[in-house]
Amino acid sequence: MHPPAIRTEHLTKRYGSLLALDDLNLTVTAGEVFGFLGPNGAGKSTTIRLLLGLARPTAGQAQIFGTPAAAVATAHQRIAYVPADVTLWPQLTGAEILELLGSTGPGVDVAYRDELVARFALDLSKPGRAYSTGNRQKVALVAAFATRAPLLVLDEPTAGLDPLMEREFRRAVVEARDGGSTVFLSSHQLAEVEAVCDRVGILRAGRLVDVATMPELRRLHRTEVLVRFAGPVPELTDVAGVDGVQVDGAALRFTLTGPPGPALRALAAADVTTLTMREPTLEEIFLDYYGEEDR
C-alpha cells in the first residue's frame, strides 16, 4: 500500500486571533488530480504553505508521501511548486532561473523542459524584471512541470495566462497525470478544474466543507433555460432534471441539471418560438453551492 501523496490530520493554523485553517483532514491519493476550491481568504494558500513547510501548523500535521511536511529536504524531493504570485530574481533571465531551479531541485527532464518552453512560447532571454505576470507564471510552470515530480502543487497557476496558454497548461496537467504524478490544483477557474480534476475539495472560512468527485460537481451545474411559446405553455412538473419552474405569460423559465433529454421531450409537443439556455457563471455555482444564508 503506497502512502497517499498528501495526508493532513487536524491541520490547523492560527495567525494571532485569526483562524486561517481549522482542523483540515484531507487525503489526496497518489496519481489523482485534486482541485482545491474556495473563495478568497478561505485558507487555500495557507494550506499550501503548510503542505510545503513554509509555515508551521498551530496544531495537527501534514504528510507528503508519508514524510512530515516539515522535513523539507526529503519531502521536497518529490514536490514541484508554482506559487500564486510568482516573483522572479529581477536580474536573472528566464534561462538562468530555470538553470538555478533545475540544478538545486530534485532533478529535471531537460528535453521535456525545452519542449515546454516552446509550447508555452516563452522567451528565456529576458531578465526577470521584464516579464509580465503571465510570463512569470509560465517560467514557474515550466520549471515545475519539467521536474516530472511525483506531486505538483499549483496555487492558482493560470490566473495570468491567456486562453491559448491555459490550454497548454491543461495539456501539461494531463501529461503529468498520465506520467503517474499527483496534481494538487488550487484555482478559481471552475472550467479548468472541471476539465482536469478527478476530485474537488471545497474550503470555506478555513474549513473543508466538502470533497466531491467531478460527476458530483457537475450535478451542481444548473443550466438556466428560457422558452417562449406561440401556443399554450406545457406542464413541466416531475420531469427529470427540471427545477425552479416559473411561468411568465407565454414564457417558461426553469433550471436544468444533468442530461436535457427528458426536458426536451416534454417541450417537443408545444409550439416553441425561442429557446435560450445559459450556463451559470462560476459565481452562481459558488453561491449556489455554499448557499448565501450560511456564509
Binding site: 529536504a73 519531502a75 521536497h76 511548486y81 506559487p83 516573483t87 530574481w89 532561473i97 531551479l101 520549471a143
Partner: peptide, 13 residues
C-alpha cells in the same frame, strides 16, 4: 517579496 519562495520549495532545508 517572494523571490526566495522557489528556493524554499526546493529539497533544501
Amino acid at each position: 517579496d517572494g523571490r526566495l519562495t522557489s528556493l524554499y520549495a526546493q529539497p533544501v532545508r
